[in-house]
Design a protein around this nucleic acid. Structure first.
Lengths: 190, 190
DNA sequence: ACAGCGATGCTAGCGGTGCTAGGGTTGCTG
DNA sequence: CAGCAACCCTAGCACCGCTAGCATCGCTGT
């Protein structure tokens, strides 16, 4: 009994170590550097051990992404909470979103561009994702007008996502980011 | 002289075949299926031949993307030209953009999400890319107001890009696409 | 206390990737 | 016709994600 629970604890700890190693490696050297061999070396186990915890590399990336959803939701919530007025809330939430993506590019990629088989329909993903989405929705609600709030939120989100990805891939000059953000915010406030 | 020109002609033709094979393969089976070995088999030459034409696989993808820029620009231009009024022009251009991305996903990926080392600062890329960008700019010009036209255009573009990528990766339900597009268009018309 | 057994994590390897070194063969040139 | 240069292929490198099979370790029932 006691030994089994210790086993389970060690196993859980090791799983945590895998996700942490993947995240750190991705943050410092990019996802290309995250290979199963390096990951195994990092946690000081052999490769097959990874597969006793996760179905494959994609699942590991998904686990990293899940962490990101929680952090993003928190960042958006705190940005909206500290905003002076509804109009400012849109601006602050938008800035928080792009800042998050800019400062944790590897995390953002795992969340929104790379991992396709994310467990969208299970566990805590929908919860944290919904939390983040809800923050966006509340921010733009005053500007929704007659439009469906969900559609407006999704479109606003798309705008932020587009700004981030096009800038990150070099299609948009980083220097004009604030100006573009202001344009987007203006179109989704008032 | 004559034989040399024939050589060059054959060489150019082979290069064209490589790009065409890459494009066809990507369109029908996705970029994952585009390997240097399959590409070589497709053009009935050995792998190293590819490297006498292109620096690497990325360069081949970039060549495919270049074709895409031209087609996208043409599609946007024709959409804008046939629009009844300025307001409709925004809607038509936006629809043309998302339709292009939806119908040629592999091409769109090569253009905007995958190939990073695109020759943005050389050859015909800027030309076609600028053509497409100009179409977007002209469409949203009436709605720019006091905002910088370039910033407005880039933001509008980001919105379209975000809608397309989030929908393609399963983050947005495809069924609500028209509604979201209408929201975006409304925010960039008037 | 010990034999047996089940879980665990290792080594080794498979089929695949992008890319390249080296050598033949081919065909033009003097 | 000899020599040479361009061309292209075979073979292989180092790496990838992933897995089969075995050895070892530690718990369990007698």
């Amino acid at each position: 009994m006691s030994t089994q629970s210790r086993r389970e604890r060690e196993r859980a700890e090791r799983e945590r170590a895998i996700v942490a190693a993947a995240r750190d490696l991705a943050l410092t050297e990019g996802w290309d550097a995250v290979t199963t061999r390096r990951l195994a070396a990092e946690i000081e186990y052999s490769q097959p051990v990874l597969y006793s915890h996760f179905k494959g590399k994609d699942a590991i990336m998904a686990a990293v992404a899940v962490e990101g959803f929680g952090e993003l939701a928190t960042a958006l919530a705190s940005a909206r909470a500290s905003a002076a007025d509804p109009r400012q809330a849109v601006a602050d939430v938008a800035a928080a979103y792009t800042t998050f993506a800019e400062q944790r590019p590897a995390l953002y990629d795992a969340m929104f561009t790379l991992a396709v088989d994310l467990p969208f329909a299970s566990q805590g993903v929908p919860t944290d994702l919904a939390r983040g989405f809800a923050e966006l929705a509340e921010a733009v609600r005053p500007a929704a007008g007659d439009d469906d709030l969900e559609a407006v939120t999704e479109t606003f989100w798309s705008g932020l996502h587009g700004l981030v990805t096009l800038m990150r891939s070099g299609r948009l000059r980083r220097t004009d980011h604030d100006r573009r953000l202001a344009v987007l915010v203006a179109r989704f406030s008032r």
